[in-house]
Nucleic acid binder design. Structure first.
Lengths: 234, 234
DNA sequence: CCTACCGATCGGTAGG
DNA sequence: CCTACCGATCGGTAGG
């Protein structure tokens, strides 16, 4: 555990995941092994390309046995979207409620998001928003909209106050997605602790440089984020 | 035409696309209508989720008629990858050969890429690199690797010379992808000319702010890019 | 969690 | 570009 799971606080939905040894998925409960295999296969072949037989074979069970753990194939990806959309949207909303400057909020979210995707035992790169719409996943869709609304409010406040550069923010939302996928991709070849820390700094630096009017104020934003984090930890 | 197609120079591979009226795809030749429908459906449902019957229905022909224009379903997406990977990789290589500072090269590429995806009549958001690997599309794979090599060389030169910030460039490549997809997404709701120009500026601003050590030098980079573009145009 | 199985749909072919 | 069609594979069920 230790340096892993810095992003998890104590969300009860994560209890089932908290103690999975990431180095040995074959020792996990079947349900989590299905999610693991599905995440990997959907990342490489997409939702429709990853068949229930592929998934079952990777898990080491027969194809119909999957439906003892999930009602149907859609329920598998819906569970993955809980980790990919619902929890991140809640987290961004919580960070916004914690207050601080828009730059501080954005900093705290990017840092959390990077740790989140580095820590998660599942590969999330196959989870595209278009799939949420196609499969009409209501909960994920609500989360997606909530995330967008909160982010847009942070951006608007940042631009109005002059902390954020006046233009270019059309690309912030898709860029955050890309950063998450890249973190997923890299987590498979990284030893935790030191490299995770470096990547969190690289991600926050990338996003805030692109956003702040004065990138020289990044160090101040970092200090403010640490202060807010210490305050809300009480 | 006019403001559209600013990114096209006179590549013979684009001759078939150059005069398609984007406002009325139903008037295009069948081959291009298949590419248009396939791009849209694969963007929303993925390669495996977009069936040949879906595509044929959108085009208004019977499903087997597709195979009069393409040898198989893979050949359709391979053609789309020509526009999504091969041509962009060639363009980045050409820009690198034109010289100028690393920031200038990056600026020119982002500006070209944004115009490219805004101008293209097909939706490219379903074209994921994982699909290139899965389907073993050799040409697209070569282009992908060439693109990465060239970009890494630009980044390294930029960091070594001090023009680029020393960290955070792990995320530049995926961020460029995200910018391209966002341009595809936005092109469907934009009136050309003015809004395209604004988006090109937003994209270059976003990427170069994230990259440059001194974002205040963006105006200088912009001038350098204009000078190089004028020189190579001779 | 297994075996046996099913209706629907897939990409692609034959032949005009 | 069409109709007719095919073997393979899909997600999911029945019943233990």
């Amino acid at each position: 555990m230790s340096a892993r799971r810095t992003s998890w606080a104590d969300d009860p939905r994560l209890a089932r995941l908290a103690h999975l040894p990431i180095e040995d998925p074959s020792s996990w409960p079947t349900r989590e092994r299905i999610l693991y295999a599905a995440g990997h296969l959907m990342a490489t072949k997409g939702f429709h390309g990853a068949t229930t037989r592929d998934i079952a074979e990777a898990v080491g069970i027969q194809q119909p046995s999957i439906f003892n753990h999930f009602a149907n194939k859609t329920a598998i990806i819906a569970t993955l979207f809980e980790y990919d959309q619902v929890i991140p949207a809640e987290r961004l909303a919580a960070i916004a409620r914690d207050g601080g400057s828009p730059g501080c909020q954005l900093y705290r979210y990017v840092e959390w998001q990077t740790a989140w995707y580095l820590d998660l035992p599942f590969d999330m790169r196959g989870l595209r928003e278009e799939t949420i719409v196609e499969l009409e996943l209501a909960e994920a869709q609500r989360a997606m909209r909530s995330f967008r609304r909160t982010l847009n409010r942070i951006i608007k406040t940042g631009v109005d106050s002059g902390q954020f550069a006046p233009e270019g923010h059309d690309f912030l939302y898709p860029a955050l997605d890309a950063l998450g996928w890249e973190a997923c991709r890299m987590s498979r070849n990284l030893t935790p602790t030191a490299e995770h820390r470096r990547l969190r700094e690289a991600a926050t630096s990338f996003v805030l440089r692109a956003t702040l009017t004065d990138p020289g104020s990044l160090a101040m934003v970092r200090d403010e984020a640490a202060a807010v984090a210490a305050r809300v930890a009480d």
